[in-house]
Simulated assay, not measured.
Amino acid sequence: MRTRISGPGPKGGIDRLEDTVKEVTNWDGLSMDPEMWYPDGNCLVHLYARGSTASSTSGPAFLIPLEFLVGLDCIPLLDRFLAGTTGNPPSNRKFVKGRSSLEYTAGRYDLYMPPPPTAEGEQKLLCRTGTRNFFAWICGKPLVGESLGQALVGLLNSMSEYRGLNVDNVEDILDYMEEGGYADLGGSPVHTLATLHFAEHFQFENLYTDAFAHAVGMHDEVILSPEYKCISTTTRSLLTHAHTELHNRLTHTSTSLSTFLTDELSPTHLGLTPASRTHLDRFRAFLTTYWTTTLGSYPPSSAIFPNQVLLRMRTEFKELYAYLVDESFTASDCSPAAAQGGVCVLQSVQAFDARLGYESFLHPLPLLP
Rank of each mutant, 00 (worst) to 15 (best):
R4Q: 07
G7T: 02
G9Y: 11
I14R: 15
R16S: 13
R16H: 08
D19M: 06
D19L: 08
V21S: 00
K22W: 05
W27S: 01
L30K: 08
P34W: 14
W37K: 04
Y38T: 05
P39Y: 12
G41S: 11
N42T: 12
L44G: 01
L44I: 00
Y48I: 05
A49W: 03
S52T: 01
T53W: 15
A54K: 11
S55I: 05
S56L: 14
T57M: 08
I64M: 09
L66E: 04
E67Q: 12
V70I: 14
L72Q: 14
C74E: 01
I75N: 01
A83Q: 11
T86H: 03
G87H: 12
N88S: 14
S91N: 11
N92G: 04
S101H: 13
T105F: 13
G107H: 13
G107Y: 10
P116F: 05
Q123T: 11
R128M: 04
N133Q: 06
F135P: 01
A136T: 04
G140L: 01
Q150N: 10
Q150Y: 11
A151W: 03
L152T: 02
L155R: 06
N166W: 11
N166G: 03
D168H: 07
D172Q: 12
D172W: 13
L174S: 04
Y176K: 00
M177I: 05
E178F: 13
G181L: 02
D184Q: 12
D184P: 00
L185D: 01
S188V: 03
S188F: 03
T192R: 00
T195M: 02
Q203Y: 13
F204Y: 15
F204T: 09
E205H: 15
E205Q: 15
N206E: 15
F212P: 00
A213L: 07
V216S: 01
H219A: 05
V222T: 02
S225T: 02
P226I: 15
K229F: 03
I231C: 05
I231Q: 06
I231E: 04
S232W: 07
T233W: 03
T233L: 11
T233G: 02
T234I: 10
T235D: 05
S237P: 00
S237N: 10
L238K: 15
L239N: 03
T244V: 13
E245L: 14
R249L: 11
R249F: 03
L250I: 04
H252T: 14
S254F: 07
S256T: 04
F260Y: 13
D263W: 02
E264V: 14
P267N: 09
P267K: 06
T268E: 15
H269K: 06
L272M: 12
L272N: 08
H279C: 05
H279T: 08
H279G: 05
R284G: 03
T289S: 12
T292V: 04
T293P: 00
S297R: 06
Y298R: 02
P299L: 07
P300E: 12
P300A: 09
S302F: 03
A303I: 10
F305S: 00
Q308Y: 12
M313T: 08
R314K: 14
T315F: 09
T315Y: 09
E316L: 12
F317E: 06
L320Y: 13
S328M: 04
P336H: 10
P336N: 09
A337V: 14
A339D: 15
G341A: 10
L346F: 10
Q350N: 08
A351N: 10
A354T: 11
L356I: 07
L356Y: 13
Y358G: 02
S360M: 12
S360K: 09
L367N: 13
L367R: 15
L368Y: 05
